[in-house]
Design a protein around this nucleic acid. Structure first.
Ligand SMILES: [Zn+2]
Ligand SMILES: [Zn+2]
Ligand SMILES: [Zn+2]
Ligand SMILES: [Zn+2]
Lengths: 160, 160
DNA sequence: CAAATTCCTGTTATAAGATAACATTGCACC
DNA sequence: GGTGCAATGTTATCTTATAACAGGAATTTG
């Protein structure tokens, strides 16, 4: 369970031991579901595994296609429900700009206020812990979406 | 052209002289288009006026319906193109969480990094000037989405 | 001014994303 | 082992968005 360095390049954009991302995330997911008293059923688990294959957002229909091929239901609600479950329980996030989903990179069951860095070069998405920017008094924030699109370090290099 | 107080409640959430919002915005739009050398054609102008009727986001199809009723084209590309023009030129913004559009509240032609406060009570949206939260070095941000959903002051009062 | 060019508006058709409503199955608990 | 709820699956439909092409208006150019 590595704690990402908030000031360095997120590991999602660099070569890293991704098998650890996967095993950490799956282990966290099991624990979190147990703590919350919710069930990480086969479709749900498999959906998370599919998202975890890369730090790349997947559309609901991409996920659905995979699920269908693997013998799960093949109609949209199957994917939307599994994804909805994961998002509700903090195991995955929806990227609004992309209408897509990524596995959470730091699922510890804590409610966290994630921000996302979306590289338009390689398509990777990094999740970082960023608070909200300063907001006016008085408005009570319940949920926030913070998404930045641009170029990761590698892709800046490639462009030059 | 009022400069919103960054620390107080945004005027969008309070009773205010909305006719000024409209006339300011339309005047700014004319000027900005002139400066940029782009054309604020009738459909585009009307689309902006429709968005300006309230500080409430409208879906592309809502706008389209209005345009159609008023003798403009009634097929989706008509609305999407007008909205696209307004967004490109900073006269309107897309609210990703809602798949909807609002007129810009501070169009001065400056590129600005807006954040949005979305009240789930009354459906109003306020645009505020908020920088990005602190992001890791190295990632080059080109566009950012910052949207907070919650309750405005009035709706907090109403809920209590 | 007329031709050439570009931009704008409009259409048809289709793609992509998402949900409502209902039937069926599996599990949990008594 | 029956009752109740959660989860899965289906059909059907809805909403959001874009591709591709045709005609028209404005602008540029010779
Ligand atoms: Zn990884
Ligand atoms: Zn990249
Ligand atoms: Zn107003
Ligand atoms: Zn409100």
């Amino acid at each position: 369970m590595s704690i990402p360095d908030p000031s360095g390049t997120p590991r999602e954009f660099e070569p890293h031991d991704h098998a650890h991302c996967v095993s950490d995330a799956m282990a966290s997911a099991e624990r979190i579901c147990a703590e919350l008293g919710v069930r990480l059923t086969p479709v749900r688990r498999r959906t998370l595994e599919i998202l975890l294959e890369g730090h790349r957002p997947m559309g609901a229909y991409d996920v659905l296609e995979r699920l269908g091929e693997e013998g799960y239901g093949s109609k949209p609600p199957v994917a939307y429900r599994a994804l909805g479950f994961l998002v509700e329980n903090g195991l995955a996030h929806r990227i609004e700009r992309l209408n897509a989903f990524v596995a959470c990179s730091r699922a510890r069951g804590q409610s966290h206020a994630p921000a996302f860095l979306i590289c338009r070069g390689c398509g990777m998405v990094a999740e970082i812990a960023a608070g909200l920017p300063e907001l006016p008094e008085g408005f009570r924030v319940e949920k926030a979406t913070v998404e930045a699109e641009g170029l990761c370090v590698s892709c800046q290099g490639a462009a030059a």
